[in-house]
Every structure is written in C-alpha cells, then in structure tokens.
Simulated assay, not measured.
Amino acid sequence: MERDKHYFAGDHTAKGFYPLYSTNFQELDLILNLTGSSNFVKTAGMKKLAEEWKSKGYGVEWIHCSSNNDLLDGIIFPQLKIGVYDSTCGTIENETASTEINVNESLKTEALEEQKTSILNYHQRINRALQSAHQSFKTGLFIHDDLEEIYINNMDFMKADKVANELINHLFNNSSHAGKTSQIKHRFFGASTPNGVIDYIPNLTDNLDKRYFIKGRAGTGKSTLLKKIAAAAEDLGLDVEIYHCGFDPESLDMIIVRELNFCIFDSTDPHEYFPEKEGDEIIDLYEKIVTSGTDEKYKREISKLTTKYKSYMKKGGTFLKKAKRNKEELDQIYMDAMDSSITEEIFYTMNENVQQQASVLD
C-alpha cells in the first residue's frame, strides 16, 4: 500500500493567503471539483471517500486546511490519478479534466433566505479577521527582516557559495535523468493555524534514507541554499517536492527528491527537529559561514527583535481563531438547512467517479 502523505497547499502568510494547489493536481486524469457553501460537508465527504479507498489498499494525499484544523482542502489518490478539491480555496490552473459536484443541491433555499443578513455579516467578519491576521504576519515579517540583517552583515558569502556547491555535488553525485522533464510540486509542510503552528515533517520524511537538518539563524542563507538545490535537481531531470515557508512563502523550507531518497530542510524554530536515526545529518550554517561571536555581540538586539516578531505571529494566530469561530457558526447555518439524504448522495457521486477511474486503470 502506498504511504499516505499530509501537507498544506494554501496558507495564511505575511503575503496574504498564498495558494499552491495547482502543481499538486498535475499528472491526474480527473479532478472532482466540490462547489457550494459548506466546507464541513465537503470535508465529511472527502474523509469518507479517503477511508473507503484506503481500506482497498490505496494511498491518500491529505491536503489540510490551514484556517481550520478540522477541515480538508482536498485529497488525492496518486495510484488512481484522481483528486478531489474544495473550490472555495481558489482555482486549479492545469489541463486536467474536471467534474463539478455542487453540495448546495442539498440546501433548503427557503431556510437560507431567512438567514440572508446573518450570512452576509458572518462573511464580512471572517474576511476582516483574516485580513487582520495577514497584517499581523506582515508586520512580524518586517521585524524579522531586521533580525536577518544582523546575520547578513556578519556572513561570509564566499564560504556560503562553497558550502552550497560542495553540498550539491555530494547530493547529486553525477545523477542524471536526462530526457525526462522534472515534475515540480509546490507545497507547505506546515502552517500557522487556529491551533498554532503545525507541521507534517515526520510524515513526509521519516521513510527517506537521508535527511539533512539545516541549522542556522535568520538570514544565514537557508532558503537560498534550498533554492540552489531545487534548481540543480530540476536541471538533472529529477522530480522535486518544494516546500515553501508558511511565514514568508517566497522563501523555501524544505526540498525532497524521492528518486534519490533524500530531503533537506530548515530545522529551526518553529519547526525544529534533531537527528534520531541513521542517515540523519546536521548542516550548521551559523557555524560554517557566520562570524564567530555574532550571537553574543548582538544578544540584546536579537532577543528584542525575536520577542517582538513572535508577538505579532501570536497576534495573527488570535485572528485566525476568530475567523475559524465565525466560519463554524456560518457553516452551522448551512448545516441546519441541509437535507441529510442528499448529502449522502454527494459521497456516492464522488465514489462512483473514483470507481469508474479505478476500472479504467485496471
């Protein structure tokens, strides 16, 4: 049975809501596009469908919702080449065939008409809370930039280039998949959620032979190093999973090249891990490329900036909680207006599509 994978493909960040869904749905034969109002009904259907096909021996990719830990944005059955997707997350931009399934068909419209004003108010409150979360994260990022500046000013960039080149040579060791086009998938291994920062690093990496834990400080080139490794893998025709930073999505936090059985990731707070099995290795960029004594010399400034930026991250989290609370109350309105017999039909419709796809592949 193929191993299940868990990740995020959209996140509330310092750059606003940042969607990375499209590349994860490439190479599929069919996408089931769930439209309509109730995210809870869509998630219930996806979870039931996932368990149904897991019981038959198929692996599932679980795409979690960053704004509500109890919800899913989508699921993918890689062996069956079929995915299911909540359309409220945004648009998937690829050429995969799509079938729409509208959960609003189970709504009693007269019941919703009575709640029209409440529904509008909930949407406005949710949007305001999410915008406030994004602004808090954005302010935190500005402060974090000042923290990075301390280390950037004390870095040896020639040493950084040397470390990168030596590591790339070591990782790829003349590997080549010439003639093959790389399949690149962009994701988040973690996200700021209403329940705090969550990551799925162990799930995504613990079956790999080699795991490289990058240690360092803000601004010591961890993301730059990962971008160079991703580019080298793509040049060699290797498939790459690129995991973006949930705080600043234009930075990278992890690269996985499963064809060569390795990952390399930013193993610092808030996703700090340490070697625990054979094949795990630390790469300490602070030790290798930063002027010795920098931590001690700027201890007061570093402490002050770290405390300040973390306070804005925490503040952003409180706004995510507020958005979640309002979304759950809004969804209860839709749940109360649902015909339960029709919601069961939604699962059967999805399942029929998967069965048809499975029979084609057989």
Rank of each mutant, 00 (worst) to 15 (best):
L147T: 09
E149M: 07
C89F: 07
K185G: 05
D209R: 12
P202F: 10
T117A: 15
K162F: 08
D145V: 01
K108F: 10
H177R: 11
D146S: 15
I201R: 04
T117V: 12
T99F: 02
E110R: 00
T193E: 11
F157A: 12
G179S: 03
R211C: 13
D199M: 03
M158L: 15
I126V: 09
K162H: 10
G83V: 00
I143S: 04
E114R: 02
G140M: 02
N102A: 08
R125H: 08
T205H: 08
S118Q: 13
L171V: 08
T99P: 00
L167Y: 02
S136L: 01
S118H: 01
E95V: 01
F137D: 02
N154D: 14
F213G: 07
D161F: 06
G216E: 08
I168A: 05
E93C: 08
A191P: 12
F188G: 10
A97R: 11
S182A: 11
T88C: 13
M155S: 15
K180I: 11
L171T: 05
S98K: 10
T205R: 08
N94Y: 00
L120D: 14
I184C: 06
G90A: 11
L171W: 05
R211T: 09
I184V: 15
F137R: 06
E105G: 12
G83M: 00
D209G: 13
K162V: 02
S182H: 04
A111R: 05
I214R: 06
K185E: 07
I126E: 12
S132I: 07
L208G: 07
I143F: 00
Q131F: 14
D156C: 01
S175P: 02
G179A: 06
Y122D: 05
T99M: 03
E95T: 10
I143A: 02
D145F: 09
Y212W: 10
D145W: 03
E166M: 01
E114I: 09
S182D: 04
D86E: 04
N174Y: 12
T205V: 13
N153P: 00
T193N: 10
T91G: 12
I184R: 06
R211E: 04
Q135G: 09
A191D: 06
T91N: 14
D86R: 01
T88D: 15
F213L: 03
S87A: 14
G90D: 09
E100T: 11
I101N: 01
L107E: 09
S192E: 11
K210C: 01
T96I: 03
D156S: 07
H186L: 07
F142E: 15
L107R: 05
N153S: 00
A164Y: 04
V103H: 04
S118K: 09
Y151A: 09
N173S: 13
V197A: 07
L141R: 15
D86K: 10
G190S: 06
Y200I: 10
V103N: 08
N104K: 00
I184P: 02
